[in-house]
Nucleic acid binder design. Structure first.
Lengths: 420, 420
DNA sequence: GGTTTATACTCGTGGCACGAGCATAAGGTG
DNA sequence: CACCTTATGCTCGTGCCACGAGTATAAACC
């Protein structure tokens, strides 16, 4: 098969060769090691004995492989607290001088970054506000962040993983309406350090985080939907997002679930986007289109929740009207979700951003519209719709996850070992 | 456990160990063999030298592995036609006494089946009409087919792969509206032979066939849509369909792209289903709902194409009206497809069944609605929409593909070798 | 202090792919 | 027709990995 989405190396696609040297065995050899590291990440604090059971390793193999990984500065072992009889085992943890991933979450107003070790824990969290909105200024600041981490950690830093509030194609930004950006190249961020740069959409990465270790943990197929201005999201299968050609998928807000008479800024018609955010609330309230639909929506929903703020500019909006509008919008959201559930049959649906508040503001209406939109055979056991566990931190944790996937791939482990 | 980490060749369940013995190495050992067989299937008639290049094998490894696979009755080698200088190589083909898969396509009026060898070629194609519509009668006949193949081929038969025009959950039919069936167990088909039984939706499997070796061959992400009564389909990523929990996904026809006022027999509202098939054509023509929407639609579209058949019961329908109705319906189909393309960003879209004729009957309207529904950044290079290459044979070929995936899995190869 | 239990360690074995060198079967050339 | 060129196949020693069986160890239990 041709090159495509899930870029990583040790992948599905019984396709053509990797194109590299005859180094087939060189990477294949790391298969078990990669599995071990994945397990350590999935269950931080796992003991060696437990690991061996999970992976069906004999004790001999476990001894060998942990020794190897310790030697390679990938894992460290510390005595585990005794539990009952038997010889004490050890807890597996990332090695203190093992590989690191720099995860960066670029947001509309600011950025955040953190260094992640192999267990997925984030250290050294930093943040900063954008000085200006221009791509050059923002990327300059991020470039400094990358350079700083590279200076401090040298070869321990193995990848940079970036979450952006934008449509991403082949590692480049196609458009970021929230930032007011058109196409932006990102390669400069790691040009000097030559680190692998992984770029993903923020909603997609938040979905990855939820599916791996968040509210949808354990789900084979999970659907994450993030509402802010419009709807973004991702379908995550086996922990990997389905992002399509070039990674531009996940634009769920541009399915025609809405009024065909409305033209969306994206260029299409009837987009779901227009039915579920602040713009929709304003329409239903007879107000003009808000300049900042996100803040506007939060204010309206706060009003519904009885937390009216003075000077929110909504003094003339009665609570009943706000509640009605929220109900309609929550219904549109739920109906669309039901359609997506019909099509994709996720085990769980997770909600992020405004969607959480929208549902809370009109939960009965939401639940009714959800049930009403499901095919009847799905109603016996409909996929639960859960609030995101990571809140606003999903994108950063998702970036960590994707970065570590890369670093613990067979090829990357082989490279790490080669470098001693 | 949170599905996570780099997922290897295996399958879904990224979770705990396989649950089997410590037979980790026993199956892992077959990784390269599985890759070789996958390649032989992907490129029937491939030579040994070409294979080695594709998989980055040294000539020594190629010698060893082909010898092993020949010994195991998985592959056979025949001299390849010489091409230029150099020592002649051999063509790899399935072994004459290698494993076989029985693929069965259960359709509304009849069934078809064939035996497939490792290269995916179908031998010994048979078919039969259903004597009665009752599940018992139909499954009885299919049981005979399975038993017959098992008698004839014994242990060479390694799996039965079944395509059904139904919603499938965990290998069972949930409902098959075309057949008028409710839930149906299928395990009895292979209870005696104890063969693995793989069950899939027909539209999903047709999509698999198109994505592997049909019109979408080479696509990393492909979307297949089949219109008959309503719309079925599948998103295929890396050759594997995204079928969700229990395999019930792919019900694209039940996304609310349509008129929210219309209640669908499925229980939901506004289903796309209702906008794109014979029922929609009848509505737009002011005719009562047809009893057999599929035949009705074919007749209307034949009329549009100028192939009016006497006695088709449409004598009072002017061609212009039929063309108008077809245009509206083709537009609805295209608009929905555009929405799905926005959400999933496939490399290619393939059409099956009525969808092909619908588009042909109103190609301008279809093309316009498709473009109009795309996000503007997708319009530069929109995914091509192609007619299915396999026509009505997609489901059977897809069943073959899935069956062979199973048979050439590492675990199945280990089992085949153990049985000598 | 002895027993039980769970786990770790040692070591010989088999399997696989590799790499280097040699062998072979064609086409091309004079 | 002898000889060269080219592409490929074959042999064999090597390194690496996980296995399995047996042995050793460190705790809790009695």
């Amino acid at each position: 098969m041709a090159s495509d989405g899930p870029r990583r190396s040790g992948d599905a696609a019984p396709g053509t060769g990797t194109g590299d040297r005859p180094e087939r065995a060189r990477t294949a050899r790391w298969r078990t090691a990669a599995d071990v590291l994945a397990r350590v990440r999935g269950e931080p604090g796992i003991t060696r004995a437990e690991l061996a059971r999970r992976l069906n390793l004999t004790t001999g193999s476990a001894t060998e492989i942990t020794a190897r990984l310790r030697e390679l500065r990938l894992l460290s072992e510390t005595p585990a607290p005794a539990r009952g009889r038997g010889r004490p085992t050890t807890v597996l943890a990332p090695h203190p001088s093992g590989p690191l991933v720099l995860a960066v979450d670029l947001r509309q107003e600011d950025w955040r970054c953190g260094l992640a070790s192999l267990d997925g824990r984030i250290h050294d969290l930093r943040q900063g506000r954008h000085a200006g909105r221009e791509p050059g200024a923002v990327l300059g600041a991020l470039g400094e962040v990358v350079a700083g981490a590279w200076r401090r950690h040298g070869d321990r830093l193995r990848a940079v993983s970036l979450a952006v509030p934008a449509t991403v194609r082949d590692g480049r930004i196609v458009q970021a309406s929230g930032l007011g950006w058109g196409p932006v190249e990102l390669g400069a961020l790691t040009a000097r350090s030559r680190l692998p740069l992984l770029v993903g959409n923020d909603a997609t990465l938040a979905g990855v985080a939820e599916a791996r270790t968040g509210a949808a943990a354990g789900a084979g197929t999970a659907l994450h939907l993030l509402v802010e201005v419009g709807v973004g999201g991702a379908l995550i299968v086996g922990g990997r997002p389905v992002t399509g050609a070039g990674g531009t998928g996940g634009e769920y807000g541009h399915m025609p679930f809405g009024d065909r008479a409305l033209r969306c800024p994206c260029g299409a018609r009837g987009c779901w986007d227009l039915e579920v955010d602040g713009r929709a609330l304003a329409r239903h309230l007879g107000a003009p289109a808000p300049r900042d639909p996100r803040t506007y929506a939060r204010r309206v929903l706060a009003r519904v929740a009885g937390r009216e703020a003075a000077g929110d500019g909504l003094d003339d909006v009665p609570i009943e009207a706000a509640a009605r509008a929220a109900g309609v919008v929550a219904g549109s959201l739920a109906a669309g979700i039901a359609g997506l559930v019909n099509a994709h049959a996720p085990d769980v649906v997770t909600l992020g951003g405004l969607a959480v508040h929208l549902r809370a503001a009109a939960s009965a209406r939401f639940g009714a519209a959800y049930a009403d939109g499901l095919m009847s055979f799905r109603r016996d056991l409909p996929p639960p719709v859960l609030d995101a566990a990571y809140g606003d931190d999903g994108a950063l944790h998702g970036a960590v996850a994707v970065g570590l996937d890369h670093v613990t791939s067979e090829a990357a482990l082989a490279a790490w070992a080669d470098a001693l």
